[in-house]
Amino acid sequence: MQKVNFLVFDDFETLDLFGVVEIFGRLKESYDLKFVSLEGGVITSSQQTPIVTEPISSIDTSGILVVPGGMGTRKLVDHHEWTEQLTKLSLLAPYVLTICTGAALLAKTGLLNGKKATSNKRAFDWVISTNQAVNWQRKARWVVADKYYTSSGVSAGMDMALGFIADRHGKACAQKIAYDIEYVWNDCPQEDFFVGK
């Protein structure tokens, strides 16, 4: 069973996180979900949803790393210790998935330099400003570059997570999860309905 480490921070976007949690949580025999933050304790989303986390020091570094976005990313892009920890964890993780403006945090580590990535279209110009060495893809629902998966805004994280499941377990598995949660999966990563709107 593989760990999935959800690395959260105050003012994360609730759906960024829990949409992806729902999808990974459907494969209980394959994934063990864990919520972590820099120091542990209660972390609160932008929508005032509190969750209990373990400290980052307790993380199983062989697990998949998932980083949501949200308004809290604006402060964290300039938080040296947080970026340093994210760099270490991302280098060790077999896969790193970011949702929405979580891509800005990963971009700040330099690990996306020269790689394709995307982010929330409403915040795209700000995300680009955090690191222009990334090959930002304005028209994309999600992007895969080596072990890095980045998605567009909020609900796009669910499409990306299903895409990740399809890559690891086959498309039929991802389709079944989408059906079971009554979600219409946009299974084409290049099809982005929100670009330019």
Results as ranks from 00 to 15, higher is better:
L111E: 09
E182H: 08
C100K: 10
D10R: 10
L65P: 00
G170W: 09
G63N: 10
V42C: 07
V195T: 11
K147V: 11
F124V: 04
D146Y: 08
F164P: 09
V134I: 12
L112F: 01
S119I: 01
V143Y: 07
A161D: 02
V66I: 12
F6E: 06
L106P: 00
D78W: 09
T53Y: 11
L86G: 13
V77S: 00
D60C: 09
I23N: 00
V143N: 08
D32F: 08
A145F: 02
Y148W: 05
Q137R: 15
E81V: 15
K197C: 11
I64V: 12
D60E: 13
P94A: 13
L7D: 05
R138M: 11
K121V: 04
E191N: 15
T150D: 03
I128E: 15
L86T: 11
A145D: 14
N120W: 04
H169M: 13
T83A: 09
K171Y: 08
K147D: 08
A103N: 04
Q2W: 02
K115A: 12
K28R: 15
G163L: 01
T87W: 01
L97T: 02
G157V: 06
L27N: 09
A145M: 05
T49R: 07
K139H: 14
F124C: 03
K121Y: 03
W185T: 01
L162E: 00
A104D: 06
T44M: 12
G63M: 06
L91H: 14
R138I: 13
T49K: 07
A174K: 04
I64F: 13
I51E: 06
C100V: 04
H79L: 01
F9Y: 14
A178C: 02
L106M: 08
E29D: 15
A93I: 03
V36I: 15
F164C: 01
S152I: 02
E29Q: 15
P189H: 03
E191W: 02
Q47C: 11
I59N: 10
L7W: 03
E84Q: 15
E81S: 12
E13L: 05
S37T: 09
V42I: 12
Q47T: 13
Y31N: 05
G40L: 12
D32R: 14
G69A: 05
K108V: 06
W185P: 00
W126S: 11
K88T: 13
L91E: 15
I64N: 10
Q47A: 14
G70N: 07
E22W: 00
K139C: 10
L89P: 03
G102V: 02
K3R: 14
F24Y: 15
N186A: 04
H79R: 08
G157E: 02
G110M: 06
